[in-house]
């Protein structure tokens, strides 16, 4: 189907009546995913500074409220089942949501807060015609027009988008919009566009999981963290990082349990109540970050916890580049090489 670009704002205006709509919005030169009230606010095709994972997994969310009074204890769950649409998601970010599904809904555990939002949120992605120089999605099993995690994928073909339904929900959604069908010319243009979207950045990640299997005690970690400031810019702007911390905010007999993003780069991360911390310095913290992304996650879910979006590269205050880290890890001698 075809959506004319000039009709996007009107289409979003209609969606707003039925759904909570999130879209990339530019404010003060920074693009973030926000809930919009009217279509003209959206800037489809812009890559957000902060990834849209927060639509499903907000940076801070109230899990439940509680109150103790003469009637006893009362609790109120804050499960959010509002029908939502995330419009203009990048394929890498949609892919990250699929990876997050593994964490929040698996054989052992279902996170009802995440999964309820996920079930009620349609993901409308816009493919990347011009990947940035910091993008390396093709090196981590994705691509500029990856359909993983999206319900609908839009391809920018000039004055319009070609819309493809990826899931059943996506199909139903597109049917309701009554859009004109795409002709052969549009389909050919979309195919060409997809072919032309070339990445300039590549990192060889083959065998990195196996390499890391033998690297827990490797001296490489001693130097890797040296310039790292230990801030959370990389993890908070990462579409797949998902560690969180739980805090109770209470006053007298009423309170609220809040879940906040956490970062393995922080000294407080995994600090035990006893005062002991198994990750005492940047060395252990950086090792955790690299291992979690390229070893533990691969072992558990058969995919790396990196979609190659490049946000950590662009936003690191000291230019610590994850592509270089991957290359360095690959180049280390672990003493158990099989050539």
């Amino acid at each position: 189907m075809i959506i004319n670009k000039s009709e996007i704002a009107g289409l979003l205006d209609n969606l707003v009546k039925e759904y909570r709509v999130y879209a990339p919005v530019q404010k003060d030169g920074i693009v973030t995913f926000e809930q919009i009230n009217e279509g003209t606010q959206a800037k489809p095709g812009a890559t957000s500074k902060k990834p849209p994972k927060e639509i499903l997994f907000p940076q801070s969310e109230e899990l439940f409220n509680y109150q103790v009074d003469s009637q006893g204890l009362r609790m109120e769950d804050k499960i959010d089942d509002t029908k939502s649409v995330a419009f203009g998601v990048r394929p890498c970010d949609a892919k990250s949501m699929m990876l997050l599904d593994n964490v929040f809904h698996n054989d052992e555990y279902e996170d009802v807060y995440y999964t309820t939002r996920r079930k009620n949120t349609l993901i409308i992605s816009v493919g990347c015609n011009q990947p940035a120089s910091t993008c390396f999605c093709t090196s981590v099993g994705s691509s500029p027009f990856d359909t993983d995690g999206s319900d609908v994928l839009l391809t920018d073909i000039g004055d319009s988008y070609l819309a493809e339904a990826i899931t059943e929900q996506g199909k139903e959604f597109l049917c309701k919009l009554n859009l004109p069908a795409s002709d052969d010319q549009a389909k050919t243009k979309a195919e060409e566009t997809k072919k032309q979207a070339q990445l300039t950045s590549e990192v060889d990640t083959t065998g990195i999981k196996e390499k890391l299997d033998d690297m827990f005690d490797h001296p490489y970690w001693e130097s890797l963290y040296e310039k790292c400031l230990g801030c959370g810019a990389c993890t908070y702007l990462c579409p797949t990082c998902h560690c969180f911390d739980i805090a109770d905010e209470a006053k007298d007999c009423a309170g609220c349990r809040v879940r906040n993003w956490d970062s393995c780069m922080f000294p407080l991360f995994t600090l035990h109540g006893s005062g002991h911390n198994p990750r005492t310095s940047g060395k252990e913290r950086w090792r955790q970050r690299a291992m979690h992304k390229f070893n533990y996650f691969v072992e558990r879910y058969n995919a790396s916890a990196c979609v190659g979006c490049g946000r950590c590269i662009k936003n690191c205050p000291v230019n610590l580049d994850i592509r270089q880290v991957i290359a360095d890890i690959k180049a280390q001698d672990t003493g158990s090489e099989v050539s």
Binding site: Q59, G230, P317
Partner: peptide, 12 residues
């Protein structure tokens, strides 16, 4: 309102 509490400011 823009702050994401990454503490890059403090750590830098």
């Amino acid at each position: 309102e823009k702050c994401i509490r990454c503490y890059a400011c403090r750590n830098a």
